[in-house]
Amino acid sequence: MTADLMAVVLLLAIAAYTCAGGTDYGAGFWDLTAGGSERGRRPRWLIDHAMAPVWEVNNVWLIFVFVIMWTGFPTLFQAVFSAMWLPLALAAVGLVLRGGGFAFRKVVRRLTERRLYGAVFALSSVVTPFFLGAAVGGVASGRVQPGTQASTDAWANPTSLMFGLLAVAATAFLGAVFLTGDARRFDSPDLVAYFRRRGLLSLTGLVVLVVITLFVTRDDAPHIWHGLTHGAGLAFGIAAGAASVTAAWLLVRRPGGWARASAVGAVACAVLAWGMAQRPYLLPPSMTVAEGAGASTTLTWLAFVTLVALVIVVPAVVFLYWLDTRGDLEELSEADLRRGGDPESGGGAGPA
């Protein structure tokens, strides 16, 4: 019972990271495709302002995923990281380079250095979700089993390729929807239209990739295909489709909080559809949840620690997002600093 509970928590943590981290990866995707220095100046300005206050906090869900995997399901952790060490290592390198590129491009002065760090940030924002998706696709296709040696076939196969492309498309969709809302918050109608078009375009591409993936998995990953077309997997898939249609409608009518919630719901339901399609296996078709679970005492303590962590983390994350939507986390301007760092103060020490 505890093993099943922690498997559900693991799936929810993956969904949380897909949505939260995926939004930031999507912003990087649109940074990459924004164009040259002049044409891409305004979109990149919005991306910097929208991401800066909250971009690092989203990795907390990735930490949840790793801790639950190696503590609650050590056999699963060993099998996945042994067979998938190369794509996961590339994803980890991309994660580090992405953070460094985003941080350094905001502080360097030379244009060439800004372009270099900006390119590192943007490219890593595409590479990282692709390889994470490819690793998930390798697991879903049944190519990872206990004792499986690392090989190209484990992650460079039709299902892995489609899952990688789906990950990139989903992050692009999330990023565009959130940036549309941020453009509206910053009162930039030109950028609202800019990112609205990209949100609808990325959603169209995502739908096409989903259809292709269903055809691919029918032959390459029959267990997952059956799960996606029957039972709970099908139900969550339908929910993802309904949420996508709602997000598109809201994006056209009035982009904002409800459009964001619908987009997040669409991607989260898609992740849950994969999880439901794969059950009762952690590694289909060789390792069930019960077979991959750790000791019952360990799982009990893990459940308790996870509950405590969520009670501490979730309110803090919600509060951070609330401050961001209010605009309370905006960077201080030079004028603010000259006034002593108080934006509300009309006086203070000005330049001599």
Rank of each mutant, 00 (worst) to 15 (best):
A235M: 06
F236G: 06
F236P: 11
I238R: 06
A239E: 15
A240G: 15
A242T: 12
A243I: 09
A243D: 12
S244W: 11
S244G: 09
S244R: 06
T246W: 02
A247H: 02
A247I: 09
W249V: 11
W249T: 14
W249H: 00
W249I: 02
W249Y: 05
W249N: 01
L251P: 03
L251T: 13
L251N: 04
L251I: 12
V252H: 06
V252C: 10
V252G: 05
V252E: 04
R253V: 04
R254N: 11
R254G: 13
R254L: 10
P255K: 01
G256D: 03
G257F: 09
A259K: 10
R260T: 14
R260A: 13
A261L: 15
A261I: 01
S262N: 10
S262W: 13
A263N: 09
A263L: 08
A263S: 12
V264H: 13
V264E: 13
V264G: 07
V264L: 13
A266G: 10
A266W: 14
V267H: 06
A268G: 05
A268E: 04
C269T: 05
A270H: 09
V271S: 05
V271E: 03
V271K: 02
V271C: 12
L272W: 00
L272N: 00
L272D: 03
A273D: 03
W274Y: 15
W274A: 08
G275N: 08
M276A: 14
M276I: 06
M276C: 13
M276R: 10
A277Q: 05
Q278K: 10
Q278P: 05
Q278H: 11
R279F: 06
R279M: 11
P280G: 10
L282N: 08
P284Y: 08
P284Q: 10
P284F: 11
M287E: 15
M287R: 06
T288S: 13
T288P: 02
A290F: 01
A290V: 09
E291L: 09
G292P: 06
A293N: 05
A293D: 07
A293Y: 02
G294Y: 08
A295R: 11
T297K: 08
T297Q: 15
T297Y: 04
T297R: 12
T298K: 00
T298G: 10
L299G: 10
L299T: 14
L299V: 14
T300R: 14
W301H: 15
W301N: 13
L302E: 03
L302A: 15
L302P: 01
A303R: 11
A303G: 13
F304Y: 07
V305F: 10
L307K: 07
L307Q: 08
V308Y: 03
A309G: 06
A309W: 08
L310Y: 08
V311H: 01
V311T: 01
V311K: 00
V314S: 04
P315H: 07
P315R: 05
P315W: 03
A316M: 02
